[in-house]
């Protein structure tokens, strides 16, 4: 696919980074604010969609590598399953990390409060793993679809998007 015009490329280059920051914020603060791993991962994948639509598939293929995203997806799912299987003697997800333990083992006061980032036990870990998995998976889908699309528009034109 041919890249879009200079105006569209500049706007996408600027606003894609705001999308990436917002998505990472939604993933990391999943246990405090609305959102979670899936929503934040979808927003970060929208960052990849912005750059793909603006710059075309061939240029993005030279910037990023597909196997890194495969690795991200497999790592996220493996982290999810292994953290769930840690306490299989009682139930799924009930392990020593739940509620208190590890990095996210802060004590949460009951009642309306502002919350702290280092609380919630396994939930923050699950948010991170699902977020990594969704970012890898949706970016993989977009990269494959953009690399397999053979453009039917006349080749040799430098830019497209204002061609009507």
């Amino acid at each position: 696919m041919n890249p879009l015009s200079v105006v569209a490329r500049t706007v996408c280059n600027l606003f894609a980074w705001f999308l990436a920051i917002f998505g990472i914020y939604v993933i990391v603060h999943g246990h405090l604010t609305p959102g979670g791993g899936f929503q934040g991962g979808a927003v970060v994948a929208t960052f990849m969609a912005f750059l793909l639509v603006a710059h075309g598939g061939e240029k993005m293929q030279s910037w990023v590598r597909k196997d890194r995203f495969t690795l991200m997806e497999c790592f996220g799912l493996t982290l999810f399953i292994s953290a769930g299987l840690l306490g299989m003697s009682k139930t799924f997800f009930f392990n020593f990390l739940a509620k208190a333990g590890g990095v996210f083992g802060g004590v949460l006061p009951i009642g309306p409060n502002a919350g702290a980032l280092n609380t919630s036990g396994t939930i923050a870990l699950m948010n991170l793993s699902v977020g990594i998995e969704v970012v890898g998976g949706l970016s993989m889908i977009l990269l494959y679809m953009f690399s397999a699309a053979h453009p039917q528009e006349p080749m040799g034109r430098e830019e497209s998007g204002h061609d009507r």
């Binding site: 246990h31 609305p34 979670g36 509620k99 949460l108 919350g115 609380t119 919630s120 036990g121 939930i123």
Partner: peptide, 10 residues
């Protein structure tokens, strides 16, 4: 029980 402020996520 789940030690998270966001009930939907918990």
């Amino acid at each position: 029980e789940a030690a998270a402020n966001n009930v939907v996520t918990s």
